[in-house]
């Protein structure tokens, strides 16, 4: 573990800010400090924390699809948790629609890597729980109707009375997508949503997400370690450097080519160039991580 000085005043690289940003991350650092042990207590020492993120600044425009990519363990999930409001930055702030994020809220829907479906509820029950919780104005019948609607959107109308253990990995992730969308969030946060799926299911679901996103425009922040996935889905790719003290290495805007075919990634010269750049960056960072230990 390395401890690094955390700047107390956040810096704002102006080049990365748009005036109409929906999400702006301003000079955010995150330090995980361990519980002080007895020895630290007796010697009046504060244990040195682990600086996961240092001075991260980022702007995300409304209704764009942004992918965050970086070497393993660099702090991608940490950043997503901060955006979700499930955790607080140690330094700096995050604004959503001009409001400082102080906690989680139904304006942000989250999709977790391992689905996080509650096993005692059916697919319908899981989505219904989200609707009832986030939209307290709806009656029970309306909430159920809405849950059905979103399960139909992800193509699960025939499996909605099944329990999670009766669903395949891809179906579970579709329930999770329906649950996140059912509360009509303006931002969808996804943490490696397809990481646990086999290649075919993964590419099928990627296309499903694209299809849904084409008619339900929301801002999407997608964490991935797949370069192809980032290239296929995003408007913008955020590259992170390795941890500790990870930060944003680069932001790449992709050509606005939509709808985008899978073949484009290997044929379009601009996409090819970006792909090479991403591969080079990830390889360099990963090598540095592996050689350090």
């Amino acid at each position: 573990m390395t401890s690094l000085a955390v700047p107390t005043t956040p810096t704002h690289p102006l080049g990365q800010r748009w005036p109409d940003a929906q999400v702006s991350v301003e000079g955010v650092s995150k330090v995980f400090s361990p519980e002080p042990g007895l020895f630290d207590f007796l010697t009046h020492r504060r244990p040195t924390g682990y600086v996961a993120l240092q001075d991260v600044s980022l702007s995300i425009e409304k209704n764009t699809f942004v992918s965050i990519i970086g070497p393993s363990g660099c702090g991608k999930s940490t950043l997503l948790n901060l955006l979700a409001g499930l955790d607080r930055p140690s330094v700096g702030q995050i604004l959503v629609d001009g409001q400082r994020v102080r906690g989680p809220g139904p304006d942000r829907g989250i999709i977790f890597q391992n689905y996080a479906l509650m096993p005692w509820l059916t697919a319908l029950g899981n989505v219904e729980y989200a609707v009832q919780t986030a939209c307290s104005g709806l009656s029970g019948g309306q909430a159920k109707e809405r849950a059905r609607e979103y399960l139909a959107l992800v193509g699960l109308e025939r499996a909605m009375h099944r329990f999670p253990k009766q669903l395949s990995g891809g179906m579970k992730q579709r329930v999770a997508i329906a649950r996140a969308l059912s509360i009509s969030p303006s931002i969808l946060l996804m943490d490696e949503p397809f990481g646990a799926l086999d290649a075919l299911t993964r590419s099928y679901l990627q296309e499903e997400v694209l299809r849904i996103w084409e008619d339900h425009r929301v801002t999407v922040v997608l964490i991935t370690h797949s370069i192809e996935e980032a290239l296929l889905l995003s408007d913008q790719i955020v590259l992170m450097s390795r941890g500790p003290a990870a930060t944003i290495a680069d932001v790449i805007n992709l050509p606005s080519l939509r709808p985008r075919q899978r073949s484009v990634i290997d044929q379009h010269p601009e996409f090819l160039a970006i792909k090479l750049r991403l591969e080079e960056h990830l390889l360099k960072e990963t090598r540095a991580v592996e050689e350090r230990t």
């Binding site: 979700a84 499930l86 989680p104 809220g105 139904p106 989250i110 509650m118 649950r179 509360i183």
Partner: peptide
């Protein structure tokens, strides 16, 4: 912990989370 995160992210109250998530879990 993911169940609690899901419930919190939906804006559920502590009480609702205990009754609807913690108890069945």
């Amino acid at each position: 912990q993911d169940f609690l995160k899901v419930s919190r992210s939906l804006g559920a109250s502590q009480f609702r989370t205990v009754v609807k998530v913690v108890l069945p879990a």
